[in-house]
Design a binder for these strands. Structure first.
Lengths: 140, 140
DNA sequence: CCTTGCTGTAATAATGTATGTTACATCCAA
DNA sequence: TTGGATGTAACATACATTATTACAGCAAGG
């Protein structure tokens, strides 16, 4: 699959904001976050926008604008970040409908759907075990 | 991520070959498999080629050529199929190196590497619980 | 040993997604 | 009112996936 770096970008941004706040800087601009992630500020705004819609960060407009945590780093798991930024399922079904005259073609999609659902749960269970606070601690 | 259908295609092909063999047809051509999956025969040959390199199927050339299981359907898990056909990791790191003058930029990659490794293990544990024989049974 | 049918793979195209970049309307604290 | 940042559209580039055509290579069976 074309693995993407959305989760990486979002976790990096959140962790950096968490560290800045611990150091007393309440609001960070997308430029400041982009400087640590080393990417374009628009990429950061898009990512933080996803996190805002999920209720994980807050944004402030006008003069002195920027981004801030909406919750304590201990209360944000990587699973919540994953859900906020990732839209596609892990595994795709057939591009074109399989041959319904074949018993396998008829039956395989729900069967695979169940298997893929369990695999997804296994992935999510692990992502739910790590918080932004854990990532911050291990970074330092 | 751009979810792909490689696992779906490979499992479908294997399950169909397993059913054909149970019905007494030992060798299937890529055209016959493609007719059930409803895709091009070259796609099937590429997928089965991956499975052959992993030791899951056998190929026969010349007249009467085709594909056959190299193991019993009970002894092939979807995890083995996944490993045979999937090359990319689930999550990508940053496209460009993060800012190494930032504590997060310096430390985050190994931290995320560990988390992503655990998430991958969670996914794989579940895929290892299902065999081609299970898929075949549930299809019928 | 030669025919025949299928495999293995290269080359190409169409499509979709990820990332990066510029531009600009909008917003709001000071 | 204004200045600086957000939100988002528009576009470019790069790459992955799937599909398709073409053809060399292989080997079973006449």
């Amino acid at each position: 699959m074309a693995a993407n770096s959305r989760l990486t970008i979002a976790v990096h941004a959140l962790t950096w904001i968490a560290l800045a706040q611990r150091r007393g800087q309440e609001w960070l601009t997308s430029e400041q976050v982009a400087a640590s992630v080393n990417t374009n500020a628009v990429i950061i705004r898009r990512s933080l926008g996803d996190l805002r819609r999920a209720g994980l960060v807050e944004v402030r407009h006008g003069a002195g604008a920027g981004w801030s945590m909406a919750r304590a780093p201990e209360d944000i798991t990587l699973l919540q970040v994953y859900d906020a930024v990732e839209r596609e399922p892990l595994f795709a079904m057939h591009h074109t409908e399989p041959n319904l005259e074949c018993p396998i073609g008829r039956g395989i999609r729900p069967v695979l759907g169940t298997v893929y659902e369990r695999a997804d749960q296994g992935l999510r269970r692990e992502l739910g075990r790590t918080s932004i606070a854990d990532v911050l601690r291990d970074c330092l």
